Computed example of a mutant assay.
Amino acid sequence: MKLFVALALFASLSSLALAKDEEYCQNTVITACASSAFSGNSICNARFAGIDHVEPEIQAYINAQLTKSYDYLLLATHFNSYQKNRPGFQKLYQGLSDRSFDDSIALIKQITRRGGVVDFNTRHESPASVSTKRNTVEVDELHSLALALDTEKQLASGATHVHSRATHAADADRDPELAHYIEENFLGKQADSVRKLSGYANDLAKLMKVPDPSLSVYLFDEYLQKQ
């Protein structure tokens, strides 16, 4: 009797597995190997949870990070010229450029680790896409800080959007692992960057409220070199 019950249970489980053949890598491999035709299958990948739902948002954010890295690099070059000669501002913007580039690489690694492919030939439009409108780099020190602050707020909003999409989607599209990754590696860092640049902009604006602000700007640049 026990043997009969065991056989019946095994049969029912086997039927359930066969009903879901298309969902599992193992079943796909078994089927393919039976005909000696297995050479890799789209089901046998590293994708799970809501990666399909969040991947376009992250790719849009990668594009935004790369664009802003280039913009910061232009600002750094502008202040490193012999006409401007502001090594402190050059150091600030070079650091922001390097950080955005490194963040792009980290996000690409995260996407591929989860079974995705980053396609730079496809334009991904979403609220995570930071405005790509080109701002002139021929600006003074205070206006450059204002541009940088706006950029950091946009990048912070993009990270928040990706986190929200991964956290508050429907059950099938929710991706806690990606949400945790964005929270741990981007949200706090972007908040700190916004706070720092807002302080710089307000401090320099106060220092420049004099008839000749050239000394104030020079001293502020000296301060930035030491940061």
Rank of each mutant, 00 (worst) to 15 (best):
S157M: 07
F48M: 12
I105L: 10
K189T: 09
Q110V: 04
H168C: 14
S214A: 15
F4D: 10
A19H: 12
D192Y: 10
E183Y: 02
G188V: 05
E22F: 11
A172W: 05
D212T: 08
S69G: 14
S39K: 06
A169Q: 07
A201N: 12
A148N: 02
K84P: 00
Y61E: 01
D192Q: 14
E138V: 10
A191L: 13
Y24C: 10
F101M: 11
R134M: 08
L9E: 13
L7C: 13
T112S: 11
Q227F: 03
L13C: 14
L147M: 12
T151F: 04
T31C: 06
G88R: 01
A17M: 15
D102N: 10
S131H: 01
I43G: 00
F186T: 03
Q59Y: 01
S81A: 02
A148E: 01
A148Y: 00
R195A: 07
L107E: 09
R123C: 07
Q26S: 15
D175N: 08
A34F: 09
S193R: 10
C25V: 01
F4I: 14
E55M: 12
H143A: 09
S126H: 04
S97N: 03
S193H: 09
T132I: 11
D71H: 05
L66W: 02
K2H: 13
S39L: 03
N45E: 05
S36E: 07
L18D: 15
L3C: 12
G158N: 02
A106G: 07
K206G: 09
T136C: 06
L149C: 02
V137Q: 05
D21G: 11
R114M: 02
F10C: 15
N27R: 11
T167S: 13
D52F: 13
I51F: 15
G188R: 04
T132N: 06
